[in-house]
């Protein structure tokens, strides 16, 4: 029981990342009809927004400490962050400590700008091109983006810890009357799950309850008719692309304390996220979210020693096996709509 509960929890945070990326992918596909293979790179860019802000906040000036020596035996250079001088050492240390959550404020405008630049600068030229062309150009863009990040930040993972107040584990075992200490779950993963629920809820509410969202949904259903009504649907779709980029970016920002970001992290999620989109149903936003969580949980269970001892390697193929079964039994995915990619 303890193990099952723990794997469900693990699946939730993994599923959160899948769901957020898949949600953005589906938004872009549903609005612009573009298969965006650069979406994983947007997740990675979001994570590097956190790294960048963390570095900006930690910008320091050097002083020489004659009492300490560096690795060459010279007087050591001591770095003191400017925020210590601006806000005092305690407040300065707290600001640096909370760099990841603060990065959300930095990432939102950055990712919106990146999204608009991507859509206006490159992707709009491929609206009327076959999906194969879109895949090639966006995949190429993803590689370019990750190489740029590698050039400036290196290939090694960069530690980006959670605030000290959110380091530690929550004992679900003790809370539920099970053995204490057997169902421990890191606070930050809990934060990540809750954050993703709020973000997903926010996107759905935006689409459901705002006029802008209503127009976008109408455009997704019948782009031509909305255009004939005199509404500049292209402009709204560009904004939706920026919002999708922002969702992926924020997913990346909050993921950095879970795994140290590196230039390749987007690619690690990209293929799985596409499987999530297909399993959920192309163009279906609830389907993407549902499939994200379901596949995340299944992947967690498949990684247990019990599962791998019965079927060796099941942890590496479970998502694809499920995808095959679902596509055989429900060709449009879990919540796919008729007519999407069927022409």
């Amino acid at each position: 029981m303890d193990g099952i509960l723990l794997q469900i929890l693990n699946g939730l945070d993994k599923g959160s990342a899948y769901a957020l990326i898949a949600l953005g992918l589906t938004l872009i596909f549903g609005t612009l009809g573009v298969v965006n293979f650069a979406h994983g790179a947007l997740f990675m860019l979001g994570a590097f927004c956190a790294v960048t802000l963390s570095r900006i906040i930690s910008l320091s000036y050097e002083t020489i400490d004659p009492n300490r020596l560096d690795f060459l035996g010279n007087p050591a250079k001591i770095n003191t962050p400017y925020v210590y001088d601006f806000f005092g050492p305690n407040m300065g240390a707290s600001i640096i400590d909370w760099a990841v959550p603060l990065s959300i404020l930095f990432a939102i405008p950055m990712m919106m700008l990146i999204g608009i630049a991507m859509e206006r600068g490159l992707i709009k030229h491929f609206y009327k091109r076959p999906h194969a062309d879109q895949i090639l150009v966006t995949f190429g863009l993803a590689i370019v983006l990750q190489e740029i990040i590698k050039f400036y930040y290196g290939a090694n993972p960069i530690p980006t810890p959670a605030p000290a107040a959110l380091v530690g584990t929550f004992d679900f075992g003790a809370m539920l009357g099970l053995n204490p200490g057997t169902v421990l779950y890191p606070y930050w993963r809990l934060v990540y799950f809750l954050f993703s629920v709020v973000l997903i809820g926010g996107v759905f509410a935006f689409l459901q309850f705002t006029t802008f969202g209503m127009v976008v949904r109408a455009g997704m259903a019948d782009r031509e008719t909305v255009g004939l009504l005199g509404i500049n649907i292209d402009k709204r779709f560009t904004i939706m692309f920026a919002i999708a980029a922002c969702v992926a970016g924020l997913a990346g920002v909050m993921y950095t304390p879970i795994n140290s970001p590196n230039y390749h992290m987007g690619m690690d999620f990209l293929v799985l996220s596409f499987v999530v989109v297909v399993v959920g149903g192309m163009g279906s936003l609830p389907g993407a979210v549902l499939a994200g969580f379901v596949l995340g949980i299944l992947e967690s269970f498949a990684s247990t020693p019990a599962a791998t001892s019965i079927v060796p390697g099941i942890n590496q193929i479970i998502i694809y096996l499920v995808a095959i079964v679902i596509l055989l039994t429900r060709p449009r995915g879990l919540m796919g709509r008729k007519g999407v990619m069927e022409e």
């Binding site: 303890d2 193990g3 723990l6 794997q7 693990n10 699946g11 945070d13 993994k14 200490g181 057997t182 169902v183 421990l184 993963r189 879970i258 795994n259 992290m265 690690d268 992947e299 967690s300 269970f301 498949a302 990684s303 247990t304 020693p305 019990a306 791998t308 942890n315 590496q316």
Partner: peptide, 22 residues
């Protein structure tokens, strides 16, 4: 007690670490 192989491509090891707790 146990020796578990993890895929080289794995990025999140939480599913492999959870059984250690039990």
């Amino acid at each position: 007690v146990e020796a578990v192989k993890t895929p080289l491509a794995a990025t999140d090891f939480s599913s492999y670490i959870a059984p250690v707790l039990n």
